[in-house]
């Protein structure tokens, strides 16, 4: 019953909110348009935009050391999450049966769980740092904590359901997935999509001014 609900009506509703919400937010950003750039163009903006999207995957050399923690913990979390969301056997199965109609080879069980280890360690460290570092604490809002907390709970309940023998645990996991999807478009979790836009914008502006940024 509970499972049917969270994997049925609630899942459809959540997926709809997610898709429509993300599309709406992206459209809103596109419609806002860009202020006309009156600076003298020194080089083309587009290549700079593309280059910056990729170059920003690593901090500047000067910031490498101060940002080392964020980088290590951040990558542990994001790569772990990526592997675990897209390559865990139960997820591939869900994607195949409920979303795309096709699937791919899932990662072995131990790879899935190793990825989860990295994701958990990274997320916990990042979250705790957000609470402990005086500067980070000041610039964090409730949204950051809700977003991080929801992600943590989704991962935690997923891990509770690993034995795959009790529908209740699976449903609990699914419930939080649905909540996360609904919350996603209205929060900073949107950075999963918008980071490309913001980096691209910076890259284009700077390239046009002839600055390598």
């Amino acid at each position: 019953m509970f499972l049917d609900f969270v994997e049925g009506p609630l899942w459809y509703a959540a997926a709809a909110v997610f898709l429509v919400g993300v599309a709406w937010r992206l459209a809103a950003i596109a419609r806002a348009g860009l202020k006309e750039d009156l600076s003298v163009p020194r080089t083309a903006g587009a290549p700079g935009a593309v280059a910056t999207v990729f170059r920003r995957f690593l901090p500047h050399r000067e910031f490498m050391r101060p940002a080392a923690f964020q980088m290590v913990a951040g990558y542990a979390f994001h790569i772990g999450l990526f592997v675990l969301v897209l390559f865990a056997a139960p997820h591939v199965e869900f994607i195949e049966q409920r979303i795309l109609g096709f699937g791919w080879t899932p990662a072995p069980h131990w790879v899935f769980l190793l990825a989860a280890n990295f994701a958990f360690a990274g997320l916990l460290l990042l979250w705790l740092r957000r609470m402990l570092d005086p500067v980070l604490r000041r610039i964090s809002t409730l949204d950051d904590h809700i977003g991080t907390g929801l992600t943590f709970v989704v991962m935690f309940t997923g891990c509770m359901a690993l034995f795959e023998s009790h529908d209740f645990l699976r449903a609990l996991h699914m419930l939080f997935v649905d909540l996360l999807l609904i919350y996603f478009p209205f929060s900073r979790l949107m950075h999963a999509f918008t980071f490309i836009l913001s980096r691209g914008f910076t890259g284009a502006t700077m390239a046009r001014k002839g600055v390598s940024a």
Partner: peptide, 21 residues
């Protein structure tokens, strides 16, 4: 309790390897 214990077992087994860190 079976539901609880199954969840606890999986959590314990998964968080174990984080503990050395």
């Amino acid at each position: 309790f079976s539901v609880t214990a199954a969840a606890c077992k999986e959590i314990h087994n998964l968080f174990g390897p984080i503990f050395p860190l």
